Amino acid sequence: MYTGIVHGAFPLASVVRKPGLHQLYIDLPPVLLEDLTIGASVGLDGVCMTVTSIDGGRVSFDAMQETLSLTTLGDLSEGDRVNVERSAKQGAEIGGHNISGHVDGRAEIIAIEESENNCTLRFRLPSNLSKYVFKKGFIGVSGCSLTVADYKRDEAEFSVCLIPETLRVTTFAEKRVGDRVNIEVDRQTQVIVDTVERVLAERA
């Protein structure tokens, strides 16, 4: 479980591509290495990944075919930066919202609006996720807990507003129109929507 409060964005030191598997290596700072063990979970761009090796400050993760197909991790190369969050500890403050690290799909950036101290990103969602997004609701975008600023249901488009600190800590400042991001819908919203749909279908 994660909170959606990204600890930092760090470049991939190496990507080893094998059939159906990519091994991702990343150098983490001491603060993120504390008590980290093989088998621990770490969020990379919103994807829950398992630590497979630790060599000094270099940590590796295995991305299997399902992960490569569903998320943006398969598009990454050496030097690309990823948002990193250690899994939440019991009792820790949740500054964002609960994120599982199980990505539902990818969204495309279709517009970027920048002004002094403000940045708004607009995304187009896969149609199957559209019903789970609401204005002022939570959404996980590449591991970052964000609030939906505006939403056009018919077009399956939503926007988020980013403060300078978010741009500093994450990879969003590097994004361009056409780039894709990982999306995780709010699980509580998903459960409510699916339950209401099921009940209505049963009554019909």
Rank of each mutant, 00 (worst) to 15 (best):
H97L: 09
I99V: 15
I5W: 03
V160I: 14
I38A: 05
V59P: 04
S115L: 05
K136S: 08
T72C: 08
T37E: 04
I192Q: 08
K18H: 14
V51N: 01
L121V: 05
N117M: 11
T171L: 03
T166H: 02
V181S: 01
H22G: 04
H102I: 10
F138A: 06
S53N: 11
D80I: 14
G43A: 15
L24M: 07
I94D: 00
V133S: 02
G79N: 03
H22F: 15
V185C: 11
Y25R: 06
V51I: 08
A40Y: 07
V59Y: 01
P126Y: 13
P11T: 14
L32M: 14
I192H: 12
L21P: 01
G4D: 07
D80M: 13
G95K: 09
A92Y: 14
V185K: 01
L129V: 04
P11V: 15
M49D: 01
L28R: 03
P19M: 09
G20M: 09
K152Q: 13
R153F: 11
L28C: 10
V84H: 05
S145Q: 06
N118E: 13
N98A: 12
Q90V: 15
G57K: 10
T71F: 01
T37L: 10
P11N: 12
F134V: 15
H22P: 00
V133R: 00
L200A: 07
R176D: 05
K152R: 15
S159D: 05
V31M: 09
S130P: 02
